[in-house]
Every structure is written in structure tokens, then in C-alpha cells.
Design a protein around this nucleic acid. Structure first.
Lengths: 190, 190
DNA sequence: TCTCCTCTGTTGCTTAGTCAACAGTATCAG
DNA sequence: CTGATACTGTTGACTAAGCAACAGAGGAGA
């Protein structure tokens, strides 16, 4: 199930996954995640329901995959996936998470309890992976687990807070204010 | 090859044809028809080149199909396919052909000699079929071939002329002026 | 309670799509 | 002229997607 992310693989598979993803993201803009059935997704994607199950275990797996793909794109756009720790990169990462969650809230119909929890788990996993990658590239051989965990939660918390505020002004200012608090946990290990 | 237009048929077939069509129409907006290769189409459509040949004999067959589909849509939009002869319907038909050709000229990159000839053949075939259908529904048992032919060429000629004029103003006025000249050939048989 | 209905996962067989390889044609440059 | 390159159209063996049918899990309502 989804073994190779973007290696050479059968074009039919790439195409089918693309159709499922697009269909799902369109549906998320219309309806609540809880009310979206696998049937809905496959109907809109013009594929058979059985085919869906050849690619994803269930709609929760699809959500995970979808979120991680979208977030990964956000990260790759800013080339944060191929770099090391720096104050500037950290700043960009926080910006990315804030913007991603904000977009999520404006694009998706009624964010629901369970839905948000699933997103949170997935995004934190991504952030943690990225930070670990950054820290492990440094000369310091200290294990990165603790500082990466702290920073991950801090960053997600900031972004969640930001994206939930009614009128979101001045993202730049918000991030600049928060940045040093997160940076202090990381720079000693980088 | 393309046996059933929109009967129940394998969703893979519908989907694949749709992908080929969209890809082709996008390409037409970018490049000259002559310079579009089957490879180009299949690359953009994300399908295998061999699959293309399972659906269309060559790119000329694709052009025919594409044109006829687009034109048919234009016709169905105005519900001209399910009606009989009347001055008003004829007027709408002329309008449809004019608008279709005009759109063709604005949407497609450099209309070329051969390209225009292929379109002309296809569209005239459609118009002829439609007019024959109208005339054969009338009580007059006279064969419709001759008047339908005359009107077909007249209508296409008008539309071609209109769509080639540099600044196209007042389509309505243009059609109202031309309408009686075409109508006189048809109404005696309807 | 029972039935009706909708959605979920799963299965074995069928069919469309993919692949790689082939021969044939055309164009272009050295 | 010759080799390189690019596109066409076709083939047979392989693989993903479609289908229809199934059992099962709720949920709504009489």
C-alpha cells in the first residue's frame, strides 16, 4: 500500500491516486470529512470503489496521505526539505505551518473535532521528521529526539493558535515574535 | 472504434477518452495542429501511446471526434438536436455555427490551411445531418438532400466569413440580415 | 422487535491499459 | 550518400482497474 512515493511506478497508479486525491480535496471543500463516504470519493474520481481499497485502507488513510502530500508540497516549495538548521529556515517553517493550517480552515467545510485531531497528528509527524533531519545533520552527536519534540509541539501550537484567531493580521509580525522562543530550544543542538 | 457515444460503457473508456480530449484541446490552444504529435497528446493525458491507438486511428480521427463533440455540445445547449424546422431554430443554428467558429479562431493557435479544411468538413457534415433531420420530419415527402446541401454550404460560408472578419461586431445584426436568404431555400420543404 | 436502507471491506473473473520491442517513414546534418 | 534522430503504427505478454456479488455493521423508523 503506497510503497514508493514518487519512484518510477505504473502510470495507471499515479493517475488513479491523483484522481482520488483531487476528488477528495474537492469534496473536503464542500462537505464535512465525517460525512464523506468512500463511495462519494470514487464516484467523483470516476473509479471503482474496489479500486479505492487497492490504494488506501480506508478514508482515514486517504486523509493522512492527502494531508501529508499537501504539506510536503508546501515544504518543498520553500526548499525546506533539503537544508539544515538555521534561524531563517526555522522562521520559514513556522510560516509554512501557519499558512497551511490557515488555508485548511478557509478551504475546508466545517472543521470538526476528529478531523482536526487527525490533521494535527499527521502534521506534527511531518514537522518532527523535518526537524530531526535538520538536527542530525549537525556535528553534535546528541540525540535530537527531545528538542525536536519540544519544537514540534511549540510550532504546531503556534500555528493552531494563529489559524484559529478570528481576524488574522500580520503573520510576519506574529512569527517574528514567536521565533526566538522556539529557536532557543533548537540552536544549542544544531 | 468509438462504437457507442454515451451509452453505458466501461468507465475506463470514458475516462481515457476524456483525458485524451482534454489534453488535445489544451494542446490546440498552445500549438499548431500540424505540430502536435500523438506522443504529445498521450504524454499530457498521462496514458500510453498504444492506448491512444486503441481509441483513435490517428490524430486526424481525434480532431474529427473532438470537433464533432464540441459542436454537438453547442447544438445540445440550444436544444437544436431535438426539434423541427422553424425560422427561429434556423436563426439559432446560424448563431451557433458563427459563435463556434469564432471561438475556434480565438482559442486555437495559428489556424492553418489543412486544419481549417478538416474542421470545415466535419462541421458541414454535422449541419447537413441536422438539417436533413429537420426536413425529414415534415410532412413533405420530397427528398431533403438538395435543399439541405444548399443551406449547409450557405450557413458554413456565412459563419466562416463572419469569423474571419478582423473586428467582429453585432453578430445578431449580421445573422438577422443573412437569415432570410437561407430560410427561403428551406421553408418551402419544411 | 423487525425490516429497510446505506455504507463498508473483500473476492474471483473479465477487460482496458501498459510496456518494450519491432519495422517503416521522414527529416536533417555532415 | 549515410547515420542520427523522431515520429508512426502494431504486436503479445503482463498488470491494474472494473464488475457483481457477498457478508457484515450500523442507523432509522414502524
Amino acid at each position: 500500500m503506497l510503497p514508493n512515493p514518487d519512484e518510477k511506478l505504473d502510470p495507471r497508479i499515479k493517475r488513479t491516486r491523483g484522481l482520488i486525491l483531487r476528488s477528495f480535496e474537492d469534496l473536503l471543500a464542500e462537505k464535512n470529512f465525517e460525512t464523506i463516504s468512500v463511495q462519494d470519493v470514487t464516484d467523483k474520481a470516476q473509479i471503482n470503489r474496489a479500486t479505492f481499497y487497492a490504494h488506501f485502507q480506508d478514508k482515514y488513510a486517504l486523509l493522512d496521505y492527502s494531508i501529508s502530500q499537501m504539506f510536503m508540497q508546501e515544504i518543498e516549495k520553500r526548499t525546506l526539505n533539503v537544508c539544515h538548521y538555521s534561524s531563517d529556515n526555522l522562521r520559514n517553517l513556522i510560516l509554512a505551518v501557519c499558512e497551511f493550517l490557515s488555508r485548511m480552515h478557509t478551504d475546508c467545510a466545517q472543521p470538526h473535532q476528529q478531523f482536526e485531531a487527525l490533521i494535527e497528528a499527521q502534521i506534527k509527524q511531518q514537522i518532527f521528521g523535518l526537524l530531526s533531519h535538520w538536527l542530525e545533520q549537525s556535528k553534535s552527536k546528541v540525540p535530537a529526539e527531545i528538542p525536536a519534540t519540544v519544537a514540534t509541539w511549540a510550532i504546531y501550537g503556534l500555528a493552531s493558535h494563529y489559524s484559529h484567531t478570528k481576524k488574522r493580521p500580520a503573520l510576519e509580525k506574529f512569527v517574528d515574535e514567536a521565533l526566538p522562543l522556539v529557536a532557543v530550544n533548537l540552536e544549542q543542538f544544531a
